[in-house]
């Protein structure tokens, strides 16, 4: 189930907004498409992200996929646990499989993202 308190992109990233902070990860749909995630590469704390630009990559056994920044801002925390246990992205994509926290530079961008209903329609369309 896609949480209702998250916003989504068409590339299957999610962002949970808490004031000026956003927590970012990839959706369950994306983690299923990828299969067993084996490695997650996210930027160092302090990196400035630009909405829509590549922020890192997620690797599964047989494929690799770019992760795009859903919003602009500065990285303030990365999920260090993913280094040792990338499987968390498959097991709990919206919880312990989160990737980074950023401090938003333009909170207005949030309105560009999809809500859960729009996102689920988008997924249904991608799956055909």
């Amino acid at each position: 189930m896609n949480p209702t308190n998250c916003k989504y992109t068409k590339d299957h990233e999610w962002a949970r907004i808490e004031g000026k902070i956003a927590i970012i990860g990839i959706s369950e749909f994306a983690s299923k498409q990828l299969g067993d995630v084996v490695f997650v590469d996210v930027p160092q704390v302090g990196t400035e992200l630009v909405k829509g630009k590549t922020l890192g990559v997620v690797e599964s056994v047989k494929t690799v996929s770019d992760i795009f920044a859903p919003l602009s801002g500065k990285v303030i925390e990365r999920n260090a646990a993913l280094e040792g246990e990338p499987a968390k992205v498959n097991e709990d994509p919206f919880g312990s499989g989160w990737m980074i926290k950023i401090e938003l530079s333009d909170p207005g961008e949030v309105s560009d993202l999809m809500d859960v209903k729009e996102y689920e329609e988008h997924c249904a369309h991608s799956e055909h």
Partner: peptide, 9 residues
Amino acid sequence: LQAREQHIR
């Protein structure tokens, strides 16, 4: 670690 390689990336 095949995701580094040309046939995938």
